[in-house]
Nucleic acid binder design. Structure first.
Lengths: 225, 225
DNA sequence: GCAAAAGTGTTCTCTGTACACCCATGT
DNA sequence: ACATGGGTGTACAGAGAACACTTTTGC
């Protein structure tokens, strides 16, 4: 709410307490049938060089959402993807700062990772993460849970695929995120009945087998069923 | 209460930018078959006297959760109830502060509202709220949505009822929150099959009709189905 | 012609929903 | 005896899960 607290009693001697406020972004992608997260190396003490989630302090004028969008853009060059606030953590670093965590889904082939840094950012499979700075692991676990839940009742997957895709690609993305095989017929039946994707009328040949019908999401923005 | 002057923030480029960080608590209860929210009057400018959600700045040493627990205790005298972080809002007051919103469910008959203030806090039916300070309406709408969703796949209702209750009381609480009548037989069948409540073996007589079996939640803590 | 992925229906089970009557008590 | 809310079962519909074979292409 507002800085002045409606319920507070002693206006005179209360001194406002300000805090560091940062955003963290858990950026997911699916590549080679596996779910990955983007990690960067810390460029400052403490724990310089340790793998961690991308993030940083808010600038004086920006909002939480703006900071998250900026960070995501910095790291991937992408702006028009699924990005949602996750949870606000306190004291992840042991120094009382506030970190508003966000999570995003990106198409690996559209993302352009920064290449001019001493330490290069990199995709890491979620089932094989390195040791992470601070309590970043907690944030990732929370994001994973939310992503998996949300996959079931929303169209978030639109953001992890290129504009045109085959149903098999879509299914592989779902399977990578859920870490569970899905039945092909049931999967297709459900996706089509949800009315969130449509065939675009062209096919794609990929390998020495039958070409697949190409589909696109009707809306490239979040929809909840 | 005095709000921090703009100069209180660290303007220098090489210094981290700190912000006011506050918590807001949307405190729900069910009374007389209607869902209510606890509102207080702002005790400071701007908008002094306007109804708003309880909240306030973090003290120097506390975490977000601790501040939310403290606020809830201040307003209701309750500590062992359902309380969950909702979302962090930015700039609700137009001055760039961060507000971590929480929501809580309390049993109206256990709550003791503050009585020694110039402006008394009060329960307001959610379907008949007064004009509210700032963007508090957005926060309440968000909390309502989350509460209604969560009612369907968790035992949050444990926190809005006394320790012992009848199935009819439980059903009335659900109906008040969802604003929709529920079928008695289906409701009882479902509640019992979820295995989250159990009969305590006693009955309660209330009015000139058949006494009702009393039940209790097996766990008085959050469970997700 | 063969390897490889695309594409396609039916059956069963389970969950949610609709619906109406008798029971125990106080007055 | 009657008014009031407590308590109970069954039938139907829709959703999700299990399951196997034919088609189209590149080589």
């Amino acid at each position: 709410m507002s800085s002045p607290s409606p319920g507070a009693r002693s206006p005179a001697k209360h001194r406002p307490v300000n805090r560091d406020v940062a955003v963290l972004v858990v950026i997911f992608t699916v590549d080679e049938g596996r779910l990955h997260i983007l990690l960067v190396r810390r460029s400052a003490q403490p724990m310089e060089g340790a793998w961690s989630l991308p993030g940083g302090l808010l600038t004086p004028s920006e909002s939480l959402d703006e900071a998250a969008v900026r960070k995501l853009d910095d790291e991937t060059g992408l702006t028009d993807v699924f990005l949602e606030q996750l949870y606000s953590f306190c004291d992840l670093d042991g120094r009382g700062s506030i970190a508003a965590a966000y999570f995003a889904l990106v198409d690996a082939s559209s993302a352009h990772l920064a290449r001019r840094r001493a330490w290069l950012p990199a995709w890491h499979p979620v089932d094989d993460l390195p040791d992470l700075a601070f309590d970043n692991r907690r944030v990732i676990d929370y994001a994973l849970q939310r992503l998996r839940t949300k996959l079931d009742y929303s169209n978030v997957a639109y953001s992890v695929l290129p504009a045109e895709f085959t149903l098999s690609q879509l299914q592989r993305a779902y399977e990578a995120i859920l870490v569970r095989p899905l039945d092909k017929r049931n999967f297709r039946k459900r996706m089509l009945s949800l009315d969130i994707i449509e065939p675009i009328g062209r096919t794609a040949t990929e390998g020495r087998h039958r070409p697949a019908q190409l589909y696109a999401f009707r809306e490239r923005k979040p929809i909840v069923f």
